[in-house]
């Protein structure tokens, strides 16, 4: 057993887990935060993407013990004060989901992608960057539209703030 401690969405959490516990299971089962999904369990689908110390990672492919001491952001941590994050709002506006199962991972991947491309994104880049996220409904078209819209909005916001 390992004692793990980490910041999750700005809150300090701790738990005693088996060493083999995956980060995604720690989030879902120990913390009850079920927004992060397990889709394929083979590291391919990206439904489990969270941010670890500011970078998108697959929480089904790392142990909770590996993440101990880190800062984790999940889909539950994006909306501030009841207001949707711009990427969440864009997914709603552009109907970037069908069944919704892949959506938490898609949104976490999109936020990471936009953070890494502060100058903006084009469609080709978005599609290439979505390599690690699978939508079984094949709803990519509106997902790409939503990410492009959010990217434009967030880049414009950053430019205004500068």
């Amino acid at each position: 057993m390992s004692k793990v401690e980490m910041m999750v969405n700005g809150r300090k959490v701790a738990g005693e887990v088996e060493d083999r516990t995956l980060l995604v299971h720690f989030l879902r089962e120990n913390l009850g935060m079920t927004g992060t999904h397990v889709g394929c369990d083979t590291s391919q689908c990206g439904a489990c993407v969270v941010h670890l110390d500011g970078k998108a990672v697959k929480s089904c492919s790392m142990l909770a013990a590996q993440a101990s001491g880190s800062d984790v952001i999940t889909i539950e941590g994006l909306a501030a004060g009841g207001e949707l994050h711009p990427v969440q709002a864009a997914f709603k506006e552009h109907h970037g989901l069908q069944c919704g199962f892949c959506t938490p991972g898609m949104i976490m991947a999109a936020v990471d992608m936009i953070n890494r491309h502060p100058g903006g994104l084009d469609e080709k880049t978005v599609r290439a960057e979505l390599e690690g996220n699978i939508c079984r409904c094949t709803g990519y078209h509106n997902i790409v539209k939503a990410i492009l819209a959010a990217s434009g909005q967030m880049s414009a916001g950053a430019a205004r703030a500068a």
Binding site: S43, S61, M113, G132
Partner: peptide, 9 residues
């Protein structure tokens, strides 16, 4: 290599 999330680890 892999995808963006894999490349972060």
């Amino acid at each position: 290599i892999g995808d963006p999330h894999v490349r972060h680890m």
